[in-house]
């Protein structure tokens, strides 16, 4: 009974979101729509990192690398041949890529698959490491990806990057992928396979004694996370229409990590909430870097201030509320209804 009610409420929530997006498309300006799009993509990225770190306990700092792979692969598949010829000034694009074309959905999927394959490739050696060493090794992987992207002019156009990527990633694609990511990861972590991942996170030794092939499960979780990071990167490339290696610095991973930590490691609803709050906050904070004129006062913008505030916020969270917004808890329909009932009863008393 509860299950069917949850299902109905989920459908209702998705419908409500759809209605809101439809309304937003007609009534909000381009800048606000852009923020809405970024919210969706950041949630995809943060959910995938939460699967890897929050649920499986693998401290990975390689997200920027997976995003870069997803972004480049899908962009090369949707760039029109003429545009490719125009932007590859240093070296022409190598042959099959120069003529290869795919529909947007397939391109994004290919970006995710490519990222997942790289995830698989590096996870086999790297996941034998634990804790902080894994973090550094995955960070190293991301940096290698960036350096390679900077040098492999025949494929990535080097430091110039790719320009004029078709802007297919509209609000429907982004939220569609965002909902799919949420659905997929929620189903995964709430299944017994998810229980196994959490077991590995909580006590690897005990998990091994329970007959769990720890390395295999880690590889699966890591690769699925890499897939969605690649999808996020692919969508972001199409949303921003330009990418270059500088975009995929460690800072990008830091932003995603911030959302995951703020939302709560091992909480999907926390990640969604933090994804919205932090994306909006990051955009809103741009005002401190822009000059402001109030009456006759002219306050010059302070470059760097936004990230100062942002990194201070992370420090506050990690020092004073380490479990983040939600800890490991989730907001569920049953939970909400329970709270409403209790409140109703209290009001009646």
């Amino acid at each position: 009974m509860y299950e069917s009610r949850t299902k109905r409420l989920n459908v209702a929530a998705v419908a409500l979101l759809g209605f809101f997006l439809w309304w937003a498309q007609g009534n909000l300006d381009g800048y606000k729509i852009q923020i809405l799009n970024l919210v969706a993509i950041n949630i995809i990225l943060a959910l995938s990192l939460n699967l890897i770190y929050g649920f499986t306990g693998l401290f990975s700092l390689g997200h920027a690398g997976f995003m870069a792979i997803g972004a480049y692969v899908s962009s090369l598949l949707i760039l029109p041949a003429a545009q490719k010829e125009m932007i590859f000034l240093l070296e022409p694009l190598v042959w099959p890529l120069s003529v290869l074309q795919a529909p947007f959905f397939v391109a994004v999927l290919a970006g995710g698959v490519a990222a997942a394959l790289f995830g698989l490739l590096i996870s086999l050696p790297v996941l034998r490491l634990g804790g902080d060493y894994l973090g550094i090794a995955t960070l190293g992987f991301a940096e290698i990806v960036r350096v390679v992207a900077n040098n492999l002019s025949g494929i990535t156009n080097g430091a110039l990057g790719l320009k004029g990527i078709p802007n297919h990633a509209n609000i429907w694609w982004n939220y569609g992928w965002c909902l799919f990511t949420l659905y997929f990861i929620a189903r995964l972590v709430n299944s017994n396979f998810g229980n196994v991942l959490k077991a590995i996170r909580d006590d690897e030794t005990a998990a091994r004694a329970m007959g769990i092939d720890v390395l295999r499960c880690k590889v699966v979780s890591f690769s699925i996370g890499a897939f969605f990071a690649g999808v996020g990167g692919a969508l972001m490339a199409s949303l921003l229409t330009t990418i270059d290696p500088k975009m995929f610095l460690f800072l990008l991973t830091f932003n995603v990590l911030m959302i995951v930590v703020a939302g709560g490691l091992g909480s999907l609803s926390g990640t969604v909430i933090a994804g919205v709050v932090i994306t909006v906050l990051l955009e809103w904070l741009r005002f401190v870097e822009n000059p402001v004129t109030i009456g006759s006062f002219h306050i010059p913008g302070i470059p760097g201030m936004r990230m100062v505030i942002f990194s201070m916020a992370l420090l506050f969270i990690i020092l004073f509320r380490r479990e983040g917004i939600m800890g490991m808890r989730e907001i569920t329909w049953n939970g909400i209804i329970g709270v409403c009932r209790r409140k109703g009863e209290k009001d009646r008393d």
Binding site: N192, N195, K198, D202, A207
Partner: peptide, 17 residues
């Protein structure tokens, strides 16, 4: 060495894997 963040039932379910 239980999986301390999981429920009692989940602990046993993990053993079933």
């Amino acid at each position: 060495r239980l999986f301390s963040n999981e429920t009692v039932l989940q602990n046993v379910m993990i053993g079933c894997h």
